[in-house]
Nucleic acid binder design. Structure first.
Lengths: 259, 259
DNA sequence: TGGTAACTTAGGTCAGACCTTTAGGCCAAA
DNA sequence: TTTGGCCTAAAGGTCTGACCTAAGTTACCA
């Protein structure tokens, strides 16, 4: 080992090369450590982490730092923080909500076009329907029926209709028994919901068409017929997209020259 | 309006119903306000927000609170914080990284099965290929070719191969010109990358097959042939999934009874 | 003129005090 | 027996003010 030493430059200085280094912040170090433990499954869901003041004495960091770390984890959906006696940071496994919220940030931040949302749904949902037809349980069917019943209720408001619609689509994803698809679909559906909320095209006609389509898809899923499920879902989602985009253009084009 | 009063219970008590209320934290209020402005486009990307101490005087909140708000936005990918003179919080629009990281949290937190990842890719990527075939530009083609060249380089390590593989798949998504699909695919690909990194099944045979498949898909995209692109991508992704799962079972089953 | 030391301005960390929220227990009035 | 008032303890939430550290800017001297 002796004898291998870094070469010297003309100045006699050793020419050791070091990559630029990142100095992590204290709060990040703590957050990373806790995050890793949580994801590793070291704590049961719902377990309380030590109190802030305990963490201070254990880590010898200041309370500010500890709190920032906890705040990071909270934003990432890894803990839920309750104030007051018996409160504290409770471990939570991140679920669809966190994906949904970050997808929403992406959508709003990147000004994702409504068309892109609908396209994405066209990509994902037929596959969900296929998986659902393969793996559905009776509980899944019950959820689908319940959602569809709510959609058919003509006395409901627009918001009710859209919410029930979201529920049904999420129920399909749930029936696929693919956790990731569930998360994505629930994020997507909610986003489409909010984007469609002001649209005026949801009339009784649309409602009836929707109910009919949902019913026939549900039937395919119940019958464990993947091919029919894919085909029908494809048609449904595609025609819905077409309808929305048509209205979207109608409402946007008539206002030229305002620039 | 007079005369409508809440019904009374048997005890003569008014039965007013109130939902549980949320009292927002100060830091959340600030964070929400800033987030809304950022997403609304009030600041150009890269704009510096006021310094922490300025925000303190403007909002009349304490520095602790202001810092927590900024930290929240940082975690959500809405600002990037630099220390030192000329530093501060710089506005940033959330991109695929933030979606990717939250999808990763979901995957690790929910213990999403590798099979679910692969299924999801099977759902999304053929559609990406279709869109790519419809909308690809010359720049897109260049990226695809570059990535494929890197994959074909047999001198590269496993990590190099996998990285180039990810690059190619992301390039397809990019060519789809759908921002959301881009974000999802880049998150998915990276996740599959890490999940596959320890697998032993990537031999020269696999590499050659992969290169061949990518080439034929690229050809379809270049020729603007959506149907062929979908078909070939479907086959590629599906057979890759099969191969991975086969190895996965082989490596997991032989160790029974350790429970 | 080139290097470097000093200064300035920003975020990062710390210590400590006080406020607010919540759970639980206790007790007196209704 | 119930209801409301009250107290206390324990936890997070907020504030203050000081100091540390990182990174540009400037000025000065060899």
């Amino acid at each position: 080992m002796a004898g291998t030493r870094p070469p010297a430059t003309s100045t006699g200085r050793s020419a050791v090369r070091l990559a630029p280094m990142e100095v992590p912040k204290a709060s990040d170090v703590l957050a990373d450590d806790l995050r890793e433990r949580i994801l590793e499954g070291e704590f049961e869901e719902g377990t309380a982490l030590p109190t802030e003041r305990d963490l201070v004495t254990q880590t010898r960091m200041s309370r500010t730092t500890v709190r920032e770390a906890l705040r990071i984890l909270e934003v990432q959906g890894l803990v839920r923080i309750k104030a007051g006696r018996g409160g504290g940071a409770f471990v939570q496994r991140p679920g669809k909500e966190s994906v949904a919220s970050s997808v929403n940030l992406l959508i709003r931040g990147q000004r994702v076009r409504l068309a892109a949302l609908l396209e994405t749904r066209e990509a994902i949902e037929p596959f969900c329907a296929k998986l659902a037809a393969q793996h559905r349980t009776d509980a899944d069917l019950a959820r689908l029926d319940a959602a569809n019943k709510a959609i058919a209720d003509e006395t409901g408001s627009l918001a009710d209709f859209l919410q029930a619609n979201v529920d049904w689509h999420v129920a399909v994803a749930t029936a696929s028994h693919n956790e990731l698809l569930m998360g994505l679909m629930s994020a997507l559906s909610t986003a489409i919901y909010t984007a469609t909320e002001n649209e005026t095209f949801v009339d009784d006609e649309v409602r009836r068409t929707t109910v009919r389509a949902h019913k026939s898809i549900t039937t395919a899923i119940r019958a464990k017929d993947p091919d029919a499920a894919v085909r029908r879902m494809n048609r449904h989602v595609h025609s819905y997209a077409q309808a929305v985009l048509e209205v979207d253009e109608r409402t946007e084009i008539p206002v030229p020259g305002e620039n």
